[in-house]
Amino acid sequence: MSTRHELKLPADFTDLADIGIEWSLPTEKERQDRRATASMPELRRYYDRLQPRMTAIAAHLDQFEYGLDQLPAAERHLLQLAYMYLESAMAVEFYRRPEPPDNFPRSRFIIDDIRI
């Protein structure tokens, strides 16, 4: 019996619950910062796990009406995992590292989270 908090995901995606628990983050800033401070092996592992599921994730979410307050909790977590995959792709496909060297300080870049 596990006392660890489980990530609630839709039935077809419960296989992602183990990795998702560490990567389901609700805001752009949190996802950005998570990517910038993660290790490359972690990011690569996340990227490799999510990539083959992305099309299925989009197809599943498309069953729900579009709207920022329309998703049940399980679907919201799934969406956040999809966003995090895209963030991880910046590290894996572009930077080849979690964060570019000598980047402008992330703490000075204000990210508003209000959008369509």
Partner: peptide
Amino acid sequence: PPKTWAQRIGLEMTIIQLREALYEDLT
């Protein structure tokens, strides 16, 4: 405005890439 979640997920890549390019300009 996106009409589907698939579109919104695709849009997130544009958001991330534009943002990261702006960081580069800031340097």
